[in-house]
Design a protein around this nucleic acid. Structure first.
Lengths: 335, 335
DNA sequence: CTGAAAGCGCTAACAT
DNA sequence: ATGTTAGCGCTTTCAG
């Protein structure tokens, strides 16, 4: 196995090229004016020696790094994974770079990972906080040390930017669809959500209740397993037909898998409506009626904030509008 | 907005506590023997001043960081996302920490991100290379600078460790299932794979061909979109029934979604068999018959390599055995 | 057990 | 346009 470290430093290059280390630095970064031929010579010797810049040294000296940290609750949720993917692509159009860490659903992990990002001097931190309340201390820390943007979920803290979708409006879209396309006496409306420890779960449930104050509500977490369990609970409650509004596509997936397994038909017996509409979940069968989050716009908006581009209005809370995508899991009346 | 930087350094704490900076370092790390009460006093003042260690300074001095870099081709693929999630959880049982970057399917991005990880002095690099051949230069670089482990896919390079599943054996399991449970005159076998630029696609196709040398083969990429397209191509080729072996669950998802949409039944008309068996894809409908990769074992094995724990045999290639999970998308004969 | 001092690799002020 | 020097924040010799 080859030598496992880069021992060629800037002063090795300087010595070899017969110049000072400052000159090497300038030649390589191109920041300062210098004679083109000397610059070329330096670059050539650097190349020959196999020189690589040590970004730790640079960042320490410059007091800034080009890393944007992204903290997600769980990469097994395709919505978060897809956000990470989109954001990666958007961030690399700048001179920054996105590094992703996953908290695995634990507030303790989350706090540790935030600390670690901060201690590594990230230029900015983007976080999807696990918990509306318990994530607050970690996030407060972040805010006081670096540019911090909350994504999709938020804590009840002022100070950090927030970018996400208008969850309540998403529920308006669903309510509209239900009013227009569903016979709710035959298929009464039921909600399957997540415990409202996260702001998105909270807002979606609020939005739902505004339209369906008397509908039964089942709360678990943002997992496909919970969707399966919820299906069991709904069936046990005696319902043999319903319009099920799920707070996330992964939950809808679990619902449908269990409803199918127990011999029920979708949408004839049970309609299923999801939320998120990105990643692989749009390929469920039957294709979900879901509220699609505007992930591209969200990602771009976050980059703008990270680069501290002047915004039209200096809002700390940016809400982007989702759209309803109707599929066979809860079709339109005419379709 | 609060002050956006941590200006409290170790010497601030030293001054305040009336000791030397060396003492503060020792008190905080606990590496060297020192009087407990002094250590306590130092820790208290550090706390009071809101001191946070600058990990860049530490890493620069110690010539090592505690970061393990993971490079994946695409976080929208739930298999890669799930690997990242598993590996995160396993790595954090040590004193290391996993940071994930996604190449978005591009070899150029991949090379840039590898460089960047190396220049940030990662303790180890775990990579799922995009391309069997074109990823080689980037990986060679990595090998010569840090401990490098290839995961799931590999380049044709000696030197770097590889940990993955026995893809050919996975195809043996599928062949066994088909031989035992399928009437291949009624449902002839067809393969839908990915262009063999990645080693896993390569090995799986090899394994398949060994058992079904005359079966038609359709090649695209590791995406659900390709699965849909492949379904169209299969139908256009005149088949109205088949056993479709897909090289990945995401492809199987696309196949099923299009087959359903065109009015075909699974498994009565078309059987569908996948590969990977982790993430959300096991919740497809109908539930996939698939080859489940041993992600937990893979993750643990990688951690062992990263920590340079002595292995029973010093193999550079670790192949772990997958298992067949039979579901209604291609049921057993008796079921 | 503690302090003084050096230096990890880099860049930015300041000289020339 | 280039070199000299200092120092980012930390740990680790080496003295005492």
């Amino acid at each position: 196995m080859a030598a496992r470290s880069n021992r060629v430093t800037i002063s090795d290059v300087a010595r070899q090229a017969g110049v000072s280390s400052a000159t090497v630095s300038r030649a390589l970064s191109g920041n300062r004016p210098m004679s083109p031929e000397l610059a070329e010579h330096v670059r050539k010797t650097a190349q020959e020696l196999g020189y690589r810049t040590n970004l730790l040294g640079r960042a320490l000296r410059q007091q800034r790094s080009s890393v944007v940290g992204l903290l997600v609750p769980d990469l097994d949720n395709p919505f978060f994974a897809s956000l990470a993917e989109h954001l990666s692509r958007v961030v690399e159009t700048s001179d920054m770079e996105l590094l992703v860490a996953s908290a695995g659903g634990s507030v303790e992990n989350e706090a540790r990972l935030i600390s670690s990002f901060l201690d590594r001097q990230v230029a900015a931190l983007v976080a999807i906080p696990c918990d509306e309340i318990e994530s607050a201390p970690g996030l407060e820390q972040a805010i006081s040390h670096t540019l911090t943007v909350q994504l999709d979920r938020r804590v009840l803290t002022t100070g950090a930017y927030y970018v996400g979708c208008d969850n309540r409006h998403g529920m308006d879209l669903i309510a509209e669809h239900v009013a227009h396309d569903v016979d709710t006496t035959a298929q009464p409306v039921v909600y399957v959500g997540a415990e409202t420890q996260s702001s998105s779960a909270h807002e979606r449930l609020d939005g739902f209740r505004r339209h369906f104050p008397d509908s039964p509500v089942f709360l678990g977490d943002f997992s496909t397993q919970w969707g399966q369990e919820a299906a069991d609970q709904i069936l046990e409650s005696g319902l043999s037909a319903a319009t099920i509004v799920a707070t996330a596509d992964v939950i809808a997936l679990g619902l449908m898998s269990r409803l199918h397994a127990t011999g029920h038909r979708i949408p004839e017996d049970f309609r299923v409506i999801g939320f998120d509409g990105v990643g692989v979940t749009p390929f469920a069968h039957p294709t979900l009626t879901t509220v699609r989050q505007p992930v591209e716009a969200i990602s771009r908006r976050i980059l703008d904030l990270v680069l501290e581009l002047p915004q039209e209005q200096d809002e700390h809370e940016v809400r982007l509008e989702p759209t309803l995508v109707v599929g066979p899991s809860s079709p339109a009346r005419d379709a």
